[in-house]
Design a protein around this nucleic acid. Structure first.
Lengths: 343, 343
DNA sequence: TCCATGCGCTAATACGTATTAGTTATGCGT
DNA sequence: ACGCATAACTAATACGTATTAGCGCATGGA
């Protein structure tokens, strides 16, 4: 029977006590509880068991100010299949850690969009504060919103490095710069002297970090060509790279590397002999592309896990603002090797 | 500066009005709002904008009784990688539909465990009612808990068919029985006359449905062997199937079919010539196993999507209890064919 | 006999918002 | 000058729980 929802008042009436007593039986301190005689306690527990009453978590949260829920905020919808391979690993890690710590997850991917069409955290329908704290996820996090978040009293941790916005932003990220630098060093060790970089050098932090790692590891003269556009015509791109005399191409996007390699081979080049291809962090499952690209693995699950733990530490007063970079494991692959010497 | 959280009272004080007025400006009906002069409204809006105030969703929910959040309850943790391929598609569908309808998702996989070690919905830390309604997910849903849920006034929809528990359970499931029946028919059309069934016939609804579809489509005499154990020794299993003279084996678990086929081939049998193998619904990505098994695809995303829409319909008073079975698309594969005639 | 003590409970309040039923001031008509 | 309508608000309350202060009663000691 879909009757009205039970409240403590109902339980109290049925047990012949006051609402306060019911509440005390449910969550009084040891002191309080001991002051309620066995008999009364049992009577109340009986009614509760019989009726299947459970306390309303909303009311509870109003009073206690917390409810063991972690919000997960993303700009881009996290799940739609196109994004799934990218986001899912973060969520796996987050869920695992949250579960471990006894928290539930509130997924907020549906916030309203502002007049500029961007999703906003601080809008009137914001449900963020239902949670005790939140994790923020997504590549293109709005700077202003982030600043507002930092400014406010709402605890959060970003998954992925974020630049300071006035104050430092707590995060657990991946060390793209170091990982990229290592790949550059490896290519240099193989004897490469002319590099191509395909992908932007500005924008999101992750983009900047890759570029920084790349250019810091390289003597400037070794950069044969920087092709900032993404998803451009492979033909045109390959032409430019060959014209520049580059023997290795670094890609920020796997989606660009795949047709590039295919076309190179179609044009009679050997990979990696004539043209090495390096991808800067992939999110496709190995084997799914048919090619084992040389790259590094972004520890997405671990990032999620660690960010969650950092947030919980903050919530439970065990730690302050944390900024951590996890290292990326190199994936050897088969697309980076010594250049053929045609001299 | 982590100051105290702003409330409407603060805004009211700053704007020189009462809390009620602030609330009216924020969400008064058109009537109410028109009665507040432009000047006052602007003054209040200014303060709100300046301070970045947002209403506390918890308090809001207390009053309004809803907050556009859908709970997703699973017994098994949904994300840990082992389960990921199974659960993720449901969540993709759910998230997509929820997003579309303007709902956020509360993932509850962390509920406490009862004394029997099982997770419970109705325990004292239950956060279910934070949401407006919920979706329940998972193979081994506790009958008693489900009954309690049906009995209560909390709206929910199950993903996957559920038996009645006193009253009917609203669900959106997949029609395993029909899909299984079709595969049996196809095998029969190929000329198979002796069938093996590897997997249980009792337990969760999905298990029962498969078995029902199987045995309904088959004349009883054609069942050469029913091997109810899962994950048993392939050697022993293959022996039993061959001894029984079966020419086709139906598996409820892909994990059983893989070593079975491998062993059969190792022993010189051709698949499907000497031994056909059919899998009853798979959750691995095609190609990942290296073999294209004949099976059917469980429309997991669609199930999630439809269940979510059904729940939202219920919440918004557009529909009542719904019980829907979606059909599963056949995956031809290469492991079912006509048996070699050795006569 | 009277006060102190402890027991077993309850009244009252806070949490932050939405909403309804007013209340005060102002203008208008007569 | 008086009532009456209307504009522009506000006071009060409800939502369901946790928590604190405290009340009435019985008992014990002086």
């Amino acid at each position: 029977m879909a009757t009205k929802r039970l409240t403590q008042k109902d339980i109290a009436r049925l047990a012949g006590v006051s609402q306060a007593t019911v509440s005390l039986v449910l969550n009084g301190s040891a002191d309080d509880t001991r002051r309620i005689p066995e008999q009364t306690r049992v009577r109340i527990q009986d009614v509760i068991a019989r009726t299947g009453y459970v306390a309303d978590p909303v009311a509870r949260r109003m009073v206690k100010g917390r409810n063991d829920i972690l919000g997960v905020f993303t700009y881009e919808p996290a799940f739609p299949s196109a994004q799934a391979d990218f986001f899912a690993p973060f969520l796996f890690g987050i869920e695992e850690a949250a579960h471990q710590c006894g928290y539930d997850l509130l997924l907020m991917t549906a916030a309203a969009r502002g007049t500029d069409g961007r999703k906003k955290i601080f809008d009137e329908t914001n449900r963020l504060r239902l949670a005790d704290g939140c994790l923020v996820l997504g590549r293109n996090f709005d700077r202003e919103e982030l600043a507002q978040l930092v400014e406010g009293d709402f605890p959060f941790v970003a998954v992925g490095r974020r630049d300071d916005v006035g104050s430092p932003v707590p995060y657990v990220g991946a060390d793209y710069a170091a990982a990229t630098g290592e790949l550059v060093a490896q290519a240099q060790a193989h004897g490469h002297r002319a590099f191509a970089y395909v992908g932007p050098s500005e924008g999101a932090e992750s983009t900047v970090d890759r570029w920084r790692g790349f250019s810091n590891a390289l003597q400037p003269s070794a950069l044969a060509v920087h092709w900032p556009e993404v998803d451009s015509d492979p033909q045109e791109l390959l032409q430019a790279v060959r014209d520049a005399g580059a023997t290795v191409a670094f890609f920020t996007e796997l989606a660009d590397a795949i047709p590039f390699r295919r076309l190179a081979i179609a044009e009679g080049l050997s990979v990696p002999g004539d043209m090495s291809v390096v991808v800067l962090g992939s999110h496709l499952r190995p084997g799914e592309t048919g090619t084992a690209f040389t790259t590094y693995a972004i520890p997405r699950e671990e990032m999620g896990r660690r960010a969650t733990l950092a947030l919980v530490d903050r919530l439970e007063g065990r730690a302050g603002l944390e900024q951590t970079l996890l290292s990326c494991e190199r994936v050897e692959g088969e697309t980076l090797g010594p250049p053929k010497t045609n001299e």
